[in-house]
Amino acid sequence: MQKAEKMQQLRVFAQEIRLETLKTIGSLGFGHVGGSMSIIDALAVLYGEVMKIDPKNPRWEDRDWCVLSKGHAGPAMYATLGLKGFYPLEDAYTLNQPHTNFPSHTDRTKTPGVDLTTGSLGQGMSTATGAALGNKIDGRDNHVFVFVGDGEADEGQVWEGAQFAVHYQLDNLVCFVDDNKYQLDGACENVMKHAKGIGAKFAAFGWNVVECEDGNDVEQIYDAIQTAYATKGVPTCIVLNTVKGKGATFADGTGAHSSQPSKEQWDEAIAYAEKQLAEIKAQ
């Protein structure tokens, strides 16, 4: 398949995930829309093209792993895995209902396809690093992907993991930083800034760093992953310059961390996402 065609398919897939994510959170009426929407294009590239997975065998030994260290973006993960056939899509609409397998934060004991449990920010960086080391020790030809928030990168643990990954030459580890410029209390610039940028920090720790100018562009993400794959001896950090709430009409551009829009706003957001999907498909 030509690359252009592949990218077109990924754009469609990303928009399908956006729509499903909105429906999933919308089934409850409130949740972490902002941080879910910003990483969707990267999830689309991973699950739509790059990752080795088997939806019928989620714990397949030779699979690629994906760890949502910013675990509150669970709904985006649930939509992605549902669309890939890990479970019926509607299952995720039980989000946060009694005894659900789809809790706010990703949980390896509950959801098929979720590799590690997260929710306490910073911890997924270490567990992903451990998984990368374990896979390397076992001589597998696979990769571990981990998503870290720009706010989450305030945690010292992120940098303890970063240091470890370089020391053990974990070139099978790829860390996406969702640089959406906001954390819970507001702009990272005001709450806790990464003075010279997060990419510079990772570089200083010895990582190979690739900046995606538009972290919501599937082609840039795809190319960055190819660079990561070609880099040996050190882990790669892909800084995704993203928009928090991307594509959710009530949240896009507001920086909102969690949202509880009205019924009308939900309907509007879902209708808009459907329209977008039709337009992208027509391209």
Binding site: F30, G31, N96, P103, S104, H105, D107, T118, G119
Partner: peptide
């Protein structure tokens, strides 16, 4: 305890 409600078991 249970006041963490929708944030779930991790919280």
């Amino acid at each position: 305890g249970v006041c963490a409600a929708y944030n779930g078991g991790t919280h």
